[in-house]
Design a binder for these strands. Structure first.
Lengths: 342, 342
DNA sequence: TTGAAAGCGCTACCAA
DNA sequence: TTGGTAGCGCTTTCAA
């Protein structure tokens, strides 16, 4: 027969306990811990000793309730499963953590309904700030957050347009333009582009970059060689297969992301074409698989870690009211990573 | 000159406001919202209308402070960047979310110091439960959590040993044993194993599986063909290269994870060996890159999503006191995924 | 330099 | 079926 005490939950040590133990008032304890007003050195030492001895840990909720702030920052992303977003969270955590902020990660799953629900949760939980990353912040969501006193930064391609909140982004158009220009100059022959699905928010920006790069070299883009596919391996594979089946023979295939590119490499190989000897292929994102691909994939690295850090810094200045001016828009460059595939 | 009001933060609507608006007491409002005692239909309707009209949202902290529970479950993982862990979080969220629990993800970065710090945070934040996943829970951490009334589940290979907390795990040994047996029977010739780094907690279990599989077929393991490497592409590549340089020609290479395996494939290819024609290779984890590898990688899928769900269910029963018995240990099978590489 | 006490918003107990 | 109210643990005036 089991007789262990089921509820071993110990009573929490409170400010009151510490005050009693140190022979001072609660106010003094609170003060010593927060440094909000001067305290006699001797008293201070006594309080600290009591804190140590009793193992006092402040109750987060009581503090949050009283101060109306939770010392928590939310990071809201569309897909926690894609490496980019955890990296953003790590970057932000690196800045915010040491300053005493908790960083909480929320996953919208790409659903508008979930986005809204999370925004409501954030105001209920009185987060001090929110970094919405990977999709354009809805104005109504931004308003709701700001009215509740939540500082906001949006990190998303194309997000520079809003005058109401700070943004961080990578200039995808410029990155793909540069990559296209660099690679197109190397290969003699038709150049193809496999873009992302038209519904996706990054697709048009990347395609614009490809077109601009072509134009820089005064090359025409052949509509039969410009197509789109889901952002997947299978999507890239069938897109290039379709071109090859149609008798087209691109010398270079610029792809809107790495998965498409790796799929395209597979298609080329299945067709008996050497990569990069007969078809060169490039991607975008620099996912893990890019380095491990055969041949290793030439791609673009958007440094999500740095984006997270940057977003956190902007947010911090808003939360602490260090900066009060108009919305700031920070653009980071994405760098080409040249490997063997193109 | 900017004259917009700087603090647009609106005063929160409280229970008091709703009560006044509906002409009832705070107690009644609280009751209607939580369903904790019967209320006359007419009163109920009036309260609900007031809630609607005023846009009332309960204050999470006040509630947590009063009830001494936060309706939050923490998931603590060693590396938020590895796909497995976000998947676990999603699985747990799928169970816990609809029941009104918030799921918060914490990243220890593989550091013991951070683990401890997070455990302290969790007790401060009065989480109702914690799923510690991907590393063995330290007994002292478990004690600290349980003493604060936090329900605990540990998900980690080899974690079945503790009588003090529930565990969920995948039997890595059995999985690799089965895979080894299956593959080894197919190929005629020497069989190699590239294991993980000896410091890593999963390495010995996977190696044991390999050895058991070999034994099942009464095959001897050649020490020169049994090596270890970091869990990386580069690690796998140099490990197999070293064997080949030494004049060894394994017909099958069983690897402790996918990155090692994909690196080994690269090494074989660089040596002009066909995969799987001359060297067959298998991995473990079924990461994204496995499917995209050339040839697609034969591997083992540990279904982190299901593990997350399972852990959440165990935790839930502890949190709600639905289950009060001795520690339970759930083992899920990991399934082989046979592709072209072996 | 310190203490007393109000009150953050909520729930749950005790009465009616 | 409902209301009054104490109190969760903390910070922050106001007074001394």
């Amino acid at each position: 027969m089991v007789t262990a005490p089921r509820d071993s939950r110990e009573r929490r040590v409170t400010v009151r306990d510490v005050a009693a133990h140190a022979g001072v008032s609660q106010a003094t304890v609170s003060q010593v811990l927060s440094g909000s007003r001067p305290v006699a050195e001797e008293t201070r030492a006594r309080v600290l000793a009591a804190v140590q001895e009793l193992g006092y840990r402040p109750n987060h909720f009581a503090r949050a309730l009283r101060q109306q702030k939770s010392h928590t920052v939310a990071i809201v992303v569309p897909n926690i499963t894609h490496v980019t977003y955890p990296m953003v969270a790590r970057g932000a955590g690196e800045i915010l953590g040491p300053l005493g902020y908790q960083v909480a990660l929320y996953d919208t799953n790409g659903l508008r309904a979930t986005e809204k629900q999370i925004v409501r949760t954030l105001t209920d939980r009185m987060v001090d700030g929110a970094i919405v990353f990977g999709y354009p912040l809805a104005p109504s969501d931004a308003r709701m957050l700001q009215e509740s006193g939540v500082a906001v930064v949006n990190g998303s391609p194309g997000s520079e347009s809003s005058p109401l909140w700070d943004t961080v982004q990578v200039d995808e158009t410029a990155a793909l333009r540069y990559l296209t220009r660099t690679l197109a100059a190397r290969y003699d022959g038709p150049i193809a582009y496999i873009g992302g699905p038209s519904g996706h928010n990054t697709a048009p920006r990347r395609e614009a970059g490809f077109r601009a790069g072509m134009q820089d070299l005064t090359l025409a883009t052949d509509p039969r060689l410009t197509t789109s596919a889901p952002y997947t391996w299978a999507g890239g594979r069938s897109a290039l297969t379709a071109m090859l089946e149609a008798g087209l023979r691109p010398r270079l295939v610029v792809c809107a992301n790495d998965m498409i590119a790796i799929g395209a490499i597979a298609a080329a190989r299945e067709y008996g074409l050497d990569v990069p000897g007969e078809v060169a292929v490039s991607g975008y994102d620099n996912i893990d698989a890019a380095e491990m691909a055969v041949p290793p994939l030439t791609t673009v690295e958007a440094s999500p870690f740095e984006q997270g850090r940057a977003a956190a810094r902007l947010l911090l200045e808003r939360m602490t009211d260090t900066y009060r001016g108009p919305a700031r828009h920070l653009t980071l460059s994405a760098e080409p990573v040249i490997r063997a595939s193109a």
